[in-house]
Each structure stands twice: as C-alpha cells, then as structure tokens.
Design a protein around this nucleic acid. Structure first.
Lengths: 139, 139
DNA sequence: GTCAGTGCAAACCCTTTGCAGAAAG
DNA sequence: CTTTCTGCAAAGGGTTTGCACTGAC
C-alpha cells in the first residue's frame, strides 16, 4: 500500500516521529502489506534482507508508533501484543486455535452507545473481540 | 455471595473439578466477594490468614477454573490476566490509568449480530472492552 | 494403594531498561 | 555540536514446568 521511502517519511513526520533508517524499515514492514503482526514477526520481516534492526529497537519503535497513533495495539492474547496498521474504526475476530486475527469492518457490527462512564473518566476507545474456534478442533 | 464450604464444594463438582483444600480456598476468595482479580491478588487474599497456597497452585487452579467455565479470563492488559467470577453475559470498562475493571451489564450495551464468521469456525465468545482514561490524568 | 494435586524452585518468554556508541539536524 | 536514537546484553515480571511429596478416594 504505502511503501515508497518518501511516503513513509511523510507518514512518520506527520505523526511527529523523526524518521530514522530503522523506523522506516519497520514502517515499511507494517504498511507495505498491512496486517496484524507481533513484534517478533516484524523483527523477522525486517531482518530478512541484509538490514539489521535490534530487538530493543523493534519493541521501542512499535511502542512509539502506537503512542503516536500510527498503529493500534490489539490486546487479545496475554502472551503477545499485536500491532494493527489499520487505525480506522473496526473490530476483530480472534481465532483462539490458530491465533489468527482478522478485521470486522465497523459497519458490519454496530453497537449502541456505551452506558454512563465511570465517574471522572473519558472514553479512550472501544474494542470488540469476537473469539472464534475451529469447528474441527479437538476441544 | 457463595461462601459456605458445601456450596463451594458443589460448585466445583458441578464443573467437573475435584474439590481439594487449596481449590476451595481459591474458590472462596473468588466467590465470597466477586470482583475482577489477578492471580497475584488471589495469592495475597488466600494467604492472608494461616492458610498457604503456592504460586504454582494458584496459577494452575485459576487456569483450570477458566477452562471449566467457573470463571472467565479477561484479557485487557498485556501484563496480566484478570479473572472474573461473573460468567453471565456482560462487558467491561477498563481504566487504562488505574487498571480498574468494572462491569457493563449486557442490557446496557447492545450489539448487532456479528457478521459471517471466518470459514470453518464457530463463535466462542464476544468481548467488548470500553477503555477509559482519567480526565485529570496527565496524558 | 493408586492416581491426581501440590509445593518449590527453576525455567520461560515477551518486553523493558541502562549505558556506551552512532546518527540526525 | 547537541540531542536523540540504536544496539547489546542484562534485568524484569507474570506465568509455566519438572519432579518429588502429599492428599483424595
């Protein structure tokens, strides 16, 4: 989708992120073929070629991207965080057998206004996770 | 709520769980005052008195309870799993500043039928997490 | 008596951190 | 030149595991 160096540089700058070589590599891995990825998968993808980005930098960069709204963290599995380059309003299927995450477009799943928020709080986001299981899986 | 030894014993048996002393202590901690707790909190509560249950047993037991439908795991924070003794259909507020989890009754938040499930899967559950933030929190 | 459960400590794994060297502006 | 970023390795922290002992039936 987005994958030219210039586009990526602009994307980072527009989110207040200084574009460095490593950040561009990580951004390219996320946006040239957008899907849900773990930090480990990004590490693998970035380091496939001759480039090398350290584990610490991958984690720090993904955290930075998430704080600056470039990607969303998806919390569905206590053992790892997924990063989602799609920051439009949408929800997720999570296959508990395979660990696979897929999108549910916002218009496919409507939900009513949430009830009154707890005292002194503002809304930060609404996540809907539809957990599914393989029909054939031994339960 | 439920807290007599007999009630708890019956509850465990009805979920196919052999009632042992440690499991009864953990079940009592969960059900005598139902709320959202982490494994660590259960450890603390169970071991307040003269009883002692090891960390491994607490984790193993909570996992067993969750697999057998006695409690639900609530995945909202990558750093820890919460256990919810309320297994009726409901949703959650999660305060990202304080880590506090509170219930949203099912009738307070309606959602439409989920779209077609991914090929070959059945639904395992739907989680709705409304993330909130303290108004006064330094962002 | 047999099988399942428990306790302890060590292992695990993802993630974060400290600090010296490198790169960006 | 100054400030921020990166890499490495080590620390961190919740959770799981291996194995001998204990308890349930």
């Amino acid at each position: 989708m987005l994958s030219t160096p210039d586009e990526l540089t602009g994307l980072l700058r527009s989110h207040g992120i200084l574009p460095t070589q490593q950040r561009l590599l990580i951004a390219r891995a996320l946006f040239e073929n957008p899907r849900h990825v773990s930090a480990e998968q990004i590490m693998g993808q970035v380091n496939e070629g001759q480039a090398h980005v350290s584990k610490a930098t991958v984690y720090n960069t993904l955290g930075l991207f998430a704080r600056n709204g470039l990607v969303n963290e998806v919390i569905v599995d206590p053992s790892r965080v997924f990063y989602d380059p799609n920051t439009t309003h949408h929800h997720h299927f999570y296959n508990i057998d395979t660990g696979e995450l897929t999108d549910i477009e916002a218009d496919q799943l409507m939900l009513s206004e949430p009830p009154t928020l707890p005292e002194g709080t503002t809304i930060a986001g609404v996540d809907v996770i539809v957990r599914v299981r393989n029909k054939t899986a031994a339960s």
